[in-house]
Amino acid sequence: MHEILSPAESQALLLSLRVSSVAVVAALPFAFATALFLARVRFAGKALVNGIVHLPLVLPPVAVGFLLLVVFGSRGPVGGWLEAHLGIRFVFNWTGAVLASALITFPLQVRAIRLALEGSDATLGEAARTLGAGPLDRLVNITLPLALPGIVSGAITAFAASLGEFGAIITFVSNIPGQTQTLPLAIYAALQVPGGETEAARLCGLSILLALIVMTAGEFAGRRARP
């Protein structure tokens, strides 16, 4: 790989893959819980909660990045506390890129899982109950498998969208090679340098190839996961 890609290019590629996969996996439990809540619980103000969940999808990514900086920055209420007490630091760190990606793609996961849950028969849980299955048993053996197609397609879509995330990452954690410089940020950096168009084009081709691989794999996995 190193013979085809330059060290800087492979660094950006691997970072992109790492940021996106960690973001998707870390957000998944929360997305599943949120989707289950929205799909199965009836409460007043559901539309508002749904709107808040979808905000990262609608807001300009730069605004999301700015809000993250305000809240999770070193002087932010959450970021400051995390740094002082747990030593977790997001700013200028790859974990910050993960947080930004996870937040931006969170609604995509929630949406896909919620659709799968709503499309699956809620009364199957009732049937399982009368057959002796307790709450956790039903979650693991009925709800999760029925939501699996949604979980897979949501994760793939979120992963793909995460690979392309730019605005939130650059605003929140800046553009640092090896730490926060994912593929899109590397393309942007290449374009800032005179004569960097060739480099940008190579990275661009790499992004296209990656996107195609992910989407094809997603289609295949989605078909396998259907009950």
Partner: peptide, 27 residues
Amino acid sequence: AALRRTAVVLQDARLFLHMSVEDNLLF
């Protein structure tokens, strides 16, 4: 309900679609 040992059969069979008939029977 899970501890009542009162099995129910309704007009819609409510079979678990992600399992084989055998796994449904043994659920």
